[in-house]
Simulated scan of single mutants.
Amino acid sequence: MSHIDIHHPHSKSPSQARKAVEDVARKLAERFEMSYEWQGDTLNFNRSGVEGHIALLPKALHVTARLGFLLSVMKGPIESEIRRVLDEKFD
């Protein structure tokens, strides 16, 4: 099993950050049949082969994910795409 662990700084207000994370989660849910739910300030997401969390911190996001065996071979491209989206939405 592979792990992704990303800390990404941001300057958004808590409500702006939550809305941006929600927008990304909604798109991923539609595109990849992923389910997600909020638990406090943490968005939990999963689908077959991946399970993770996005924690909203005051000035940063903390993204963690566990990739199953089949997706672990694509860890590099998956992590790069997460970083690209974070740069786009939280820059």
Rank of each mutant, 00 (worst) to 15 (best):
M1L: 13
A25Y: 05
D23R: 05
A25F: 08
Y36G: 00
S15R: 04
H62P: 03
K75N: 12
V85R: 13
V50K: 04
K59N: 14
G49N: 05
G49M: 05
A17F: 01
E79C: 08
T42R: 01
I54H: 00
E79K: 10
S13I: 07
I6C: 07
N44S: 10
L70C: 07
S13Y: 02
A65L: 09
I4M: 10
R47T: 13
R26Q: 15
K59D: 14
A29P: 03
R66A: 06
S15L: 08
H8D: 04
H7F: 12
L57Y: 11
L67E: 05
S48T: 15
V85H: 07
E81W: 03
E30Q: 13
R47M: 14
F45R: 01
T64Q: 14
I4W: 10
M74Y: 11
F90M: 05
K12V: 05
G40P: 06
E81V: 07
F32M: 14
S15W: 03
Q39D: 03
R84V: 10
A29N: 03
D5V: 03
L86I: 08
L70A: 08
F32D: 10
K89Q: 13
L86G: 02
L71D: 09
S35A: 11
A25P: 00
A65D: 03
R47Y: 04
R83V: 01
S80N: 12
E22L: 02
V63W: 15
V21Y: 04
F32W: 14
G40I: 01
A29R: 05
A29F: 09
H3L: 10
I4Y: 13
S35K: 12
H53R: 14
V50H: 02
E51M: 08
L28M: 12
L67R: 00
K27T: 14
S48K: 08
L86T: 04
D41Q: 03
D23V: 09
A65M: 13
S35F: 08
V85M: 14
Q39I: 00
S2Q: 09
S2P: 11
A65I: 03
S48R: 04
L56F: 00
P9Q: 10
R84P: 01
D5M: 08
R18N: 09
L28Y: 12
L67C: 05
K19M: 06
R83Y: 02
R18K: 14
R26W: 05
V63K: 06
A29V: 06
S80I: 06
P14I: 02
A65C: 10
P9L: 13
S48N: 09
A29S: 15
F32P: 10
A55D: 05
N46E: 12
L43W: 00
H3G: 07
R84C: 12
H7V: 11
V50R: 06
Q16T: 08
E33P: 00
R31I: 06
R66G: 05
E22W: 01
R31M: 11
A55W: 03
P14Y: 04
R84L: 12
L61P: 03
G76S: 13
